[in-house]
Simulated assay, not measured.
Amino acid sequence: MKEAKHRINMEEQESGKVQEKVNDLEDVEANETKAHLPYLPLDMVKLIAKRLILVDYLHFRATCKMFHSVAPQIQWRTTTPRLENPSLSPWLVLFGKESVYSFIDPNHGEKYLINLPQVLKEGSIIRSSKDGWLLVTVRMSTFFFNPFTQALLPLADRSFRIRNPCMGFSSTPDSSECVAVEIEDKTANNSNFFVNYCSPGNEDWDEWEFEYTNFSFDCNSPVFYKGAFYYLGKEGNLGILKLNDEEHSFEVLTKPKPPCNGNFQKFLVECNGELLSIFVAPFGKWVRVFKLNESKMTWVRVENLGNYMLYVSHTSSMSAIVKSPGMENKIYFPRFYGESIVFYSLETDNYHSFKSKDVVDFYSTTELLCCGWIEPRWC
């Protein structure tokens, strides 16, 4: 009996020592946190968490137990975060499995999933993107969709299927100036083109027919620039669509002349108030950037983007000011090297990825077609 009591006392003492060590470790961690933040009350820490951009918010939660308790976990599949500073660089968005959209951060390589509304879960196609909104079609229906706020705005129903992926829109759908446009190629029996256009709240899509011009539409979305839609044709020439109350017009510019002749991938993007064209040689042999000189109507070669970066795809192309060191002066494509997004550096004239220090061989990359770029915005 005495031996049993002695054993119990020894176990209790050992258990007490272990608990004391656990308490000591927790006290040390708490003291270290307080040492780093001696003047920040809990309310101030909460305020800081609310104003962080998403990636920093996720890192903030992982710093210590205090931060983890202050910043709630983001349930991406059921809710969306409403962070106050949406100053993230564009993400690649694509329709994924299980009826969700997948988002990939090209810098950090992190992947996020967001649930789709029921109406978009079967056969939705991304057509264009602007200011955090997507223009999406589902069979004969068209929607504006903000995947971060889950806002969904349907446009008027159609009596025909969307045949041409060349679609775009002028501004966010909450703007009175917003209009979505689609160009229909001429048919075998008709040499003319048709523009279908619609604004939020309209009961029908309007159609405008214009005569055939020496212009072949590519499958890229247009850029809304200075009150008009600019198209970069298959031959590298510019076409301008103006939808005015009195009279619509489509003009093919004789100047500027195409800066490159040949079968190239080509993209059009607005950057810092100027119009840029990007040409990619077959098999990615080289990438060239040109800026439109509007006074002389010529394309001028750009060899350095400075503090800007470009994101190009067939559904959406955009520019952004660098927010993370090392991303500047680069062009990001919907291409992957393994699981890392590929970019072209104008400084090295080579393809790279953030997960590989070596030059990336273009033949070893994979291009995604049904995707686009989007600016993460919760406002």
Score class of each variant (00 low, 15 high):
211 E>C: 06
261 N>C: 04
134 L>T: 04
206 D>V: 01
373 W>A: 02
276 L>Y: 15
104 I>D: 01
96 G>N: 06
36 H>S: 01
320 A>S: 13
9 N>C: 09
114 I>C: 11
353 S>G: 07
37 L>Q: 01
342 V>Y: 09
181 V>G: 08
278 I>R: 03
157 D>F: 03
206 D>N: 08
313 S>C: 09
233 G>I: 14
311 Y>H: 05
113 L>S: 10
114 I>R: 13
97 K>H: 07
350 N>F: 07
329 N>F: 13
235 E>A: 13
24 D>F: 15
188 A>T: 14
68 H>E: 10
35 A>Y: 04
219 C>E: 13
91 W>F: 15
375 E>Q: 03
269 V>W: 01
254 T>S: 13
6 H>Y: 08
162 I>P: 00
87 S>K: 10
152 L>T: 10
167 M>H: 15
262 G>K: 11
225 Y>F: 15
307 N>W: 02
339 E>K: 14
172 T>H: 00
198 C>L: 08
219 C>G: 00
156 A>C: 11
376 P>H: 02
326 G>P: 02
156 A>D: 10
192 N>G: 06
107 N>H: 11
344 Y>S: 05
181 V>W: 08
255 K>T: 13
68 H>P: 01
345 S>I: 12
12 E>Y: 06
346 L>G: 12
338 G>P: 09
11 E>A: 05
176 S>T: 14
240 I>Q: 04
363 Y>Q: 12
147 P>N: 13
102 S>N: 07
348 T>S: 15
166 C>V: 15
2 K>C: 02
91 W>S: 01
40 L>I: 10
155 L>P: 09
5 K>C: 10
53 I>S: 05
171 S>I: 04
112 Y>W: 08
267 F>G: 02
159 S>A: 05
348 T>G: 01
153 L>I: 15
366 T>Q: 08
115 N>P: 00
74 I>D: 05
201 G>M: 06
39 Y>A: 04
343 F>D: 05
171 S>K: 10
131 D>R: 01
138 V>M: 03
36 H>M: 09
228 A>N: 12
26 E>M: 11
222 P>M: 10
296 K>F: 00
120 L>E: 11
74 I>W: 03
72 P>T: 05
134 L>Q: 04
146 N>W: 08
126 I>V: 15
76 W>E: 06
228 A>H: 09
251 E>Y: 09
246 E>P: 00
297 M>Y: 04
312 V>Y: 02
284 G>A: 12
248 H>V: 02
346 L>W: 14
325 P>H: 08
124 S>W: 06
144 F>I: 05
193 F>T: 03
194 F>G: 00
